[in-house]
Simulated scan of single mutants.
Amino acid sequence: MSASADALDTIRAQIAFGAAQIGRFEAMLLLGHAIGRTREFLIAHDDETLDEESILRYHMLITLRSAGTPIPYITGRQEFFGRYFEVNDAVLIPRPDTEVLVEQALLVAPAKPRILDLGTGSGCIAITLALEIPGAEVTATDASAAALATAERNARALGASVRFREGFWWDAVPQKDMFEVVVSNPPYIRPDDEHLANLGNEPLGALTDGIDGLQCLRDIVAGAMAHLKKGGWLLLEHGYDQGEDVRNLLLSAGFAAVHTKKDYGGNDRVTFGRRAE
């Protein structure tokens, strides 16, 4: 093999190859994933050569990314609240804005609370709350068996104690079960929303209710009072333009102290209220 061919096998050359197609940051991330090395290693050893198998694996990942597959679905994991969660095409990719929901739940949760996460997906919300609140008793539900299996693996991997139940919204919750905190990040994108087209790799049923973006929120609010203890809180993530609608839902259902918290981009994102009686 010639010296020029050797040069194409270096980490530096392969990063440049990927950067031309998907950008340097993502190229380094995928190369690190392909060869099991950190970004720091790639920078410090950029003159090292790679074997053919590693290069082929890396090029396959670039092809997937170029075709629109999100990075977390390629690497199989995503960071959320400082921890890494397994993700796959059965669950949504955890997003930083959902951390706002967790932050607000942490603020209102009493000591050793009973917490319910409806529509848990990857389990990132339920597991994070279980790990962040000592003594919390956390239950998480989902209608998707595949999503629940993913969440259960995440709980085991992160050492979180969470009870999982399968079913649609309140159907998964025994009638007698009561909670101090109920959280949910339900499907809330309208089926005609232009942003939906950019989320084709994620499970459609976890993104939209197929109606108006508010139906799942209505269903959750309608059943919440029956499962909240006095003084308990319901916290809901929703779309950037749904703050007023969700506040009205909570107020109509009799919730007090209704408030909307904005996300890191300055958009309405989490609305919550308290059962006053």
Rank of each mutant, 00 (worst) to 15 (best):
V87G: 04
T49F: 02
I127D: 10
I125G: 03
E99N: 02
Y84V: 06
Q104C: 07
E79I: 05
V91P: 01
L56D: 12
R37E: 15
H45Y: 11
P134F: 10
F80A: 13
T75Q: 07
P72E: 08
A130H: 04
E48Q: 09
G23E: 14
R95K: 01
I115S: 03
I43Q: 09
T128Y: 00
P96K: 14
L118G: 02
D46K: 09
R24P: 01
R83M: 15
C124E: 10
T120W: 13
P134M: 12
G32E: 10
I62V: 14
M28E: 15
P110G: 13
H33I: 07
R57S: 14
L61F: 15
I43M: 07
H59W: 07
I35V: 13
L131W: 11
A126G: 09
Y84M: 11
N88C: 11
A126F: 13
R65I: 04
F81Y: 15
R65T: 05
G68T: 09
T75D: 10
A44S: 13
L116P: 01
E48A: 14
E79F: 01
E86L: 15
P110S: 08
R95Y: 13
R114F: 09
D46V: 05
V102P: 00
I74D: 04
D51L: 07
A111K: 15
G68E: 04
F81N: 13
V102W: 02
D89P: 15
L42E: 09
L42V: 04
T128E: 08
L29I: 12
L56M: 08
E103M: 03
H33M: 08
T98Q: 04
I133R: 06
M60F: 14
L107K: 14
V87N: 06
L92A: 04
L118E: 09
G82A: 04
P113Q: 10
A27R: 06
N88W: 05
R39W: 06
T49Y: 02
G82R: 01
P134S: 14
A111W: 14
L31I: 08
I55Q: 15
K112I: 04
E99C: 03
L107Q: 12
H45G: 08
